[in-house]
Amino acid sequence: MATAKKAAEQSNLPFAYTQYSHEQLRDVLRKMYLIRRFEEGAEDSYMRGLIHGTMHLSIGQEASAMGICMPLTDEDQITSTHRGHGHSIAKGADVKKMFAEFFGKTTGYCKGRGGSMHIADVSKGNLGANGIVAGGIPIAVGAALSAKRLGNGKVVVSFFGDGANNEGAFHESLNMASIWKLPVIFVCENNGYGMSTSTARSTAVANIADRAAAYSMPGVIVDGNNFSEVAEASHAAIERARAGEGPTLIESKTYRYRGHSKSDRNRYRTKEEIEDWMTNRDPITLFETELKEFGVIDDKGIEAIREDVAREIAEGIEFAKEGPMPEISDLAQFVYTEEVA
């Protein structure tokens, strides 16, 4: 086994193919499909009036979520964003309980109190999506402070978007993580737009990773639509964090196919731009092509994954529909920690 790994390392294979087994790689593809179909299923349920409120879809960003989370353990923690469905699934969440949450049911992850924007799964280390841009970044630094002080070996990943890089919380957090050498990885998923405002119009530096220099940490740019490239950067940052060498800023350049939220009329970008990303840079298509090229999977295998994912999504939606609504009399539950008798 060791020799096989060494041989792979010496070859020119991309990182993921030297690091993960074929079975693991097929599972990555499966999860990328699971994220996409989950979001399509959520969107469809929203259109049919089964889900209210709004949602922020990450369709097109699946490789970024999977690449970052692949080297993490279940004990490692993440903070996520309003566009956090992919992070949640990549970190191991059950789509049944996610759908149930979107449907406002007590069988959901947050018992119907949080919805899409506050999806969390503490048992798998997901400390929660966040409705406030950059709101989760200092919380991730705090979790990393706990990890260091308690000596439990955990690392923490803070996901955020390009919009967050102009919030004060981002800058304050990177600075503190650096001066205290905390085991945290800052992952900026730059999809080019903070709502409608492009990074070119909002951000003084060409790359958000350039901000890292101001806080004396490595700033790494990766193609966020290339699973292996993202996983390689994540792996290196996690090793550095676990070794006590401090934080890293990873900028994962990607693209969201859908609008910012359900109110988006798409007036700030062209059809051609969107189609170009969908046709030429789709993370799932790219990964599939690569997997076939390296003999990890064939068309039949891909078809089996698609069918399996479709079944899991359908079951998830059924589970959500069947779950009970919260009792109105429980409105005030969870505001404070209940007295333990």
Partner: peptide, 23 residues
């Protein structure tokens, strides 16, 4: 001692509280 970063500092305290410390 924290830097003069009230927003970030308060957030670090919140994150630490959620994950096992008592700041």
């Amino acid at each position: 001692d924290t830097p003069i970063s009230e927003l970030g500092g308060a957030g670090v305290a919140v994150g630490a509280a959620v994950t096992g410390l008592r700041p």
